[in-house]
Amino acid sequence: MIVKFCGATTEAEVREMAAAGADLVGLWHGVPGGRAELTAARLSDLAALALAGGRLRPTLVTFSSDTQALLATVAATRVPCLQLHGFQPPDTVRALRRDGPPGLEIVKVLHLRDDVCVEERLTGAYERAGADTFLMDTVTADGRLGSTAEPLTDTAVTALADRTGLPFLLAGGLHAGNADDFAGARAHPRFLGIDVDSAARAGDGLLRADRARAVAHAWRTA
């Protein structure tokens, strides 16, 4: 099962996530006002550190729809995975697939509010445009996206998974104690893994190996 921890901003956090046995580390760029937003230079440094370690795949997490800027960033940083966390249209996915480097993994986030997928009518278009994976996450009542610490329901996740055709990751308030709450999602044939932020952070707000390891162990052995 894939485990991703999101929002690293320091070299120490990248190393801690590798030590915790993570597969992916999320690096924010193009998330205006985001608490983990990185400059292009900082993104490049942390992506290079993750790649050099040989275990972690750095993932560019962005709200941007500027395909040319995104392609330039992917080329400069050599990130193998791009997570479109905003409301980018299928045309953005199509352009990234057409013009991006071979092997670039494109993850499109699907946002659920009150168990209803905001992008429901576009899921088929995203698949045809070339997305590799969906990531199911919460959008709050006040419109906040990403790192909300608000969980989805298992029934909503599995129902949406049944209506779509791509492998999927699960996000939204996941922690070491709620793996059993998502038995249906975990048993789904297209379930890939989880994307975690808040539960892997210590009191200082930084990602820590012991907390991340506890989450990964709980979900991998549930």
Score class of each variant (00 low, 15 high):
66 D>G: 07
67 T>H: 02
67 T>V: 14
67 T>S: 12
68 Q>L: 13
69 A>M: 07
69 A>F: 03
70 L>D: 04
71 L>G: 06
72 A>H: 13
73 T>R: 02
74 V>I: 15
75 A>W: 12
75 A>L: 13
75 A>V: 02
76 A>F: 01
76 A>G: 14
77 T>L: 11
77 T>W: 05
77 T>A: 07
77 T>I: 12
78 R>W: 14
78 R>A: 15
80 P>Y: 04
81 C>W: 13
81 C>A: 10
82 L>W: 03
83 Q>E: 12
84 L>E: 03
84 L>G: 11
85 H>C: 12
85 H>W: 05
87 F>E: 08
87 F>H: 13
87 F>R: 09
89 P>W: 10
89 P>C: 00
89 P>A: 06
90 P>T: 03
90 P>M: 04
90 P>W: 01
91 D>I: 02
92 T>H: 02
93 V>G: 08
93 V>L: 05
93 V>A: 02
94 R>A: 15
94 R>S: 12
94 R>I: 02
95 A>Q: 13
95 A>W: 06
95 A>Y: 07
96 L>P: 03
96 L>K: 07
96 L>F: 08
97 R>D: 11
97 R>G: 00
98 R>M: 09
98 R>P: 01
98 R>A: 15
98 R>K: 13
99 D>F: 11
99 D>C: 10
101 P>C: 13
101 P>K: 07
102 P>F: 12
103 G>F: 14
104 L>H: 12
105 E>W: 12
105 E>H: 10
106 I>K: 00
107 V>T: 09
107 V>M: 09
107 V>A: 06
108 K>P: 03
108 K>D: 04
109 V>A: 07
109 V>K: 04
